[in-house]
Design a protein around this nucleic acid. Structure first.
Length: 274
DNA sequence: AAGTACGCCAACCGCTGTGTT
DNA sequence: CAACACAGCGGTTGGCGTACT
């Protein structure tokens, strides 16, 4: 197998694994400063590192490379990630190209955490839907019973009792129905998702993710604070070629604005237009 | 204060894509 | 054109720190 002859073969030679030491980082840094990125398989020989080329590349790309951002993903970045993920799916490296200083690994990890949260919320939603369905079934059952009771001749007193019962149940059913309407209007309020934008202003939600739906779009807008990056790295051909089929089929253009107002660009059929 | 659950992140693994011979 | 070597990508895992009980 090809892979066995390449990285796999190298790993069989007893390369060191696990966390990198500061000494190893220093050696790798020196090597890249001297010879530049690439030729990772030579690192072991040239830099005196007992690491596979693959491991060296990963360490450089994800940790040592200059210009990497540290710290939490900002709400703006979060918005970009969500929107681009809706466009391209799990194309982490592609998404990472639009986020300067962020690695695909970082974005992948972020999304994983984010998706887990969403999954939990979805479970809550399913539970709620089941409860609503049950309530509606009970309501239907009650209405059927009431119809049967009305159809059978009874004494005045018992009829009156039934009328009162029916009225009470109808009132209760109406109340439940109203609750259903409320919960369907704000389906994920319980999970802090799909909340009204006003909630964000009130500080009730902390991030973009909290106000974005399954599609990851909010008013079709993407807020990007880094115009330099957008103009510097977005490549029309690359963007188009990297789009998946569904994105290419997407007829709707997604308009994006830079916060500064100096530039705006539009994703269209997976490409973009300034 | 101790134990447990959870989230985050660095790193590994296997596979695929690409360039070279 | 085929084989090979390397580079890159995405999924997964394990360890560590923190919050919660």
């Amino acid at each position: 197998m090809v892979t066995m002859m390449g990285w796999g073969f190298a790993e069989q030679q007893g390369w060191r694994k696990g966390p990198w030491t500061p000494e190893e980082d220093k050696l790798l840094n020196e090597y890249v400063n001297l010879y530049g990125e690439g030729r990772w398989s030579c690192v072991a020989k040239c830099a005196g590192l007992n690491r596979s080329g693959k491991s060296c590349r990963l360490r450089w790309v994800n940790y040592l490379r200059p210009g990497l951002k540290r710290g939490h993903i900002t709400p703006q970045e979060e918005g970009i990630i969500i929107e681009l993920h809706a466009l391209w799916g799990n194309k982490w490296s592609t998404i990472a190209r639009y986020l300067p200083g962020r690695t695909d690994n970082e974005i992948k990890n972020f999304w994983r955490t984010h998706f887990k949260k969403k999954e939990k919320c979805t479970q809550k939603q399913e539970k709620r839907k089941a409860q609503i369905l049950l309530a509606k079934q009970q309501q239907q059952l009650q209405e059927d019973q009431n119809l049967k009771i009305r159809a059978t001749p009874q004494s005045e007193a018992s009829q009156g009792e039934n009328i009162n019962m029916t009225t009470d149940h109808e009132a209760q059913a109406r109340q439940e129905n109203n609750m259903d309407l409320i919960s369907s209007s704000y389906p994920n309020l319980e999970g802090d998702q799909y909340c009204l934008p006003a909630l964000m202003n009130q500080g009730s939600v902390g991030s973009w993710a909290d106000i974005l739906g399954e599609e990851g779009l909010y008013m079709g807008r993407l807020w990007n604070l880094d115009d330099e990056h957008v103009n510097g790295r977005m490549d029309r051909n690359t963007s188009l070629s990297q789009c998946n089929k569904s994105a290419m089929q997407n007829q709707a253009a997604v308009t994006a604005f830079s916060s500064g107002g100096d530039h705006s660009y539009t994703f269209y059929n997976g490409g973009y237009i300034f």
